[in-house]
């Protein structure tokens, strides 16, 4: 890697006053993100607890109600999200290697995949809403016999909804990264925001990895 005086100068302007060096700042930011990931896990954890408690009470409800979810599109969405995780990892790799173009391309693909995910989610939601499978007291569908069917779908909507909110925030972050990357902010010595957003995005992926079998694949 060429270390011209220009990059040398650039290398330092990101170090904030209270850090000794770039390394300390990077490590701090990353640890901060991991701590934040802990809070995210516990936050989704609350919903998983609701899921597990109701499943332990009404296993038959889950069997019956999950037939309304389309496992095929769930699977497609899983592929989409895993793919986006892969491109985010590639984006970080590009940043580490100072390949700013590669970074931007990979971010574009990620944003595209994230949109695909949301679009598929939108069709899934609207199909259900059309049938009257709406959250909460707006639930009017009568194709399911179980008297607590509304609760399964409340949990479904809460889990996938909160996940969807996270995906949307992720899209926003990626766009912000693209803007910054185009301004040539990132380089091999400073790609902290990319790394951190990447961690966030992988977390979103991991949550979906659990949501998919738990909601769609109950046979």
């Amino acid at each position: 890697m060429s270390s011209t005086s220009a990059t040398e100068e650039k290398r330092l302007d990101h170090v904030q006053h209270h850090f000794v060096d770039s390394e300390q700042q990077f490590e701090s930011a990353k640890m901060g993100m991991w701590v934040f990931i802990v809070t995210e896990i516990l936050m989704f954890g609350g919903l998983f607890v609701a899921y597990i408690v109701y499943r332990s009470w009404y296993p038959e409800l889950y069997l019956e109600a999950s037939t309304q979810l389309n496992a095929f599109w769930g699977m497609v969405n899983t592929f989409v999200l895993i793919g986006s995780s892969l491109t985010v990892a590639m984006a970080i790799r590009s940043a580490q290697l100072n390949q700013i173009k590669g970074l931007i391309y990979n971010l574009y693909i990620t944003i595209g995949l994230a949109f695909t995910f949301m679009v598929i989610k939108y069709f899934e939601y609207s199909e259900k809403l059309g049938k009257g499978i709406a959250p909460g007291e707006y639930y009017t569908y009568d194709g399911l016999e179980h008297e607590k069917a509304n609760i399964f779908f409340s949990i479904y909507y809460m889990m996938t909804g909160l996940h969807g909110v996270h995906v949307t925030i992720g899209i926003g972050l990626m766009i912000w990264l693209v803007v910054k990357a185009k301004k040539n902010v990132f380089h091999s010595e400073y790609y902290t925001p990319v790394e951190i957003t990447g961690l966030y995005w992988h977390l979103v992926d991991i949550i979906w990895i659990f949501l998919f079998p738990l909601l769609y694949l109950i046979d």
Partner: peptide, 9 residues
């Protein structure tokens, strides 16, 4: 959500 939508959990 319980108040807004009546999710019933």
């Amino acid at each position: 959500m319980e108040r807004a939508l009546g999710i019933g959990i």
